[in-house]
Amino acid sequence: MSTIRIPTPLRPYTDGRKEVECPGASVTATLQELTARFPALGPHLFSGDGTLRPYVNVFVNDQDIRSLQGPATALTSDDRVMIVPSIAGGGESPALRPVDHAALRTNQAVIIGLLIAAYLVDVPVLAAAVGLLMLVGAARARPAFGWLYAWLRRARALRPDIVSDNPEPHRFAQLLGGVFLSLAGLSFAVGWSGTGWILAALVTLLAAINLFAGVCVGCAIYYWLARLHVPGFSKSPPPGVLPGRRPAA
């Protein structure tokens, strides 16, 4: 039995107890035993994936388990385990930048129009060309048809719609579309036109969901990858916005 010291904010979940005796051969086993006895404590100690929440620190006899063997640290009956929160927080990340969603929507509309036209007149090379332009756009961090938007703005046909947002997920979404259409182009080249048109239809569908429903699936994938700590994907959705949803202006 190890003695576990419970910090003030978590005592309401341990019947007000400051210390709890718990069996277990390791820190993980002991904490699992603790949350089995006090189930309401679980969500405050562990994230959904079963790992300790970032603010939960565990000390064994005054030593942080990170400097021992982590959650696998072995325990003996005389050990004193302390759960100590580190308290963190802070204002919104000002990393959000102005993103012109009118430019993004124009891009989506042109992509949808060109891909449907390519299918109707059966010109696969047009679909492949759209893909190529999207890849170039992603590489330059601009919408593929940004030049057309700029022209429409000069003609006063469109007005900008500036939203505080992360530009990176939109760039990734365009990259994803470009990759799909490039694969479509390859499919056409080897004679698999069915596969090619299915890929083109998928890009059309995702662009349409973005244009008409304000949901950027490519952006959502970006945020999910960021949550999985995939290198190169670092941004979180703007506060209070579901991954891929358009932030309020």
């Binding site: 904010p9 309401p12 970032p54 603010y55 308290i87 927080g89 802070g90 204002g91």
Partner: peptide, 26 residues
């Protein structure tokens, strides 16, 4: 716990929510 938000509203951010502990008044 008290903390300041320099040039930012006195309301919790998404990060505050992620990191928050129960019981405490923020």
């Amino acid at each position: 716990i008290f903390h300041s938000h320099p040039d930012h509203p006195a309301q919790p951010s998404a990060f505050d929510l992620e990191q928050a502990l129960p019981f405490y008044t923020y």
